[in-house]
Amino acid sequence: MYDPTVARLTYRGLLGRRRALILGALPVLLIVISVAVRGFTGADDQVAADVLGGFALATMVPIIGVIAGTGAIGPEIDDGSVVYLLAKPVKRPTIIFTKLIVAVAVTMAFSAVPTFLAGMILNGNGQQIAVAYTVAALVASIAYAALFLLLGTITRHAVVFGLVYALVWEALFGTLVSGAKTLSVQQWSLAVGHKVSGDLVTSDVSLATGTVLLVVVTVAATWFAGQKLRTLTLAGEE
């Protein structure tokens, strides 16, 4: 199910180009904000939860997910180099699964790790807030990577759609419209985070609902992406 060569090509593609800079920008911003907030207001649990919930989980994690998830396959399909993977006796679902693993790992590295660091800076993991949001970022990374990897296989405009989902749906509707909250990766992962920390991390869905939906979305998106790749049509240049 996992092909080390596909993995190597994927992470070198992801981290080699300008994308690595973009991936690094948001975590750096989060750390800078955390240092500034800590410097101005001192250690405050509520402020820490607001920063991690409002910026790290609501904005940074989905955007990193979009960049890593779509970037794990989108550019190869776009420029046609994916043909070198497809013209091999390697099962297409294996290619997708491997790319998912890489996308998850990259999303985790660039979102969960800085989230934890920011939490430590903000209030030294008081009330387990740093750990809770890190756990939430970890599980969200998996679902986002799967979702945006699928998006990368079905549309050339995956980044645009991904950002619209991340910013408009998750960040805007997800916080304003209660119905949208049930269908939000952010809320599902917060449900998991709530389990760790308690009342400073809140979610609109129950742990059971959140977990089931996270698993269903991840598995379904990955399966569908594998099927999609099996029938991927490479447009000729004529």
Binding site: L9, R12, G13, S81, V83, Y84
Partner: peptide, 15 residues
């Protein structure tokens, strides 16, 4: 059993 040489140029240029 098949070897393919595509027309398109793109081929993991960073390698």
């Amino acid at each position: 059993h098949i070897g393919i040489v595509p027309e398109r140029e793109a081929m993991y240029d960073f390698l």
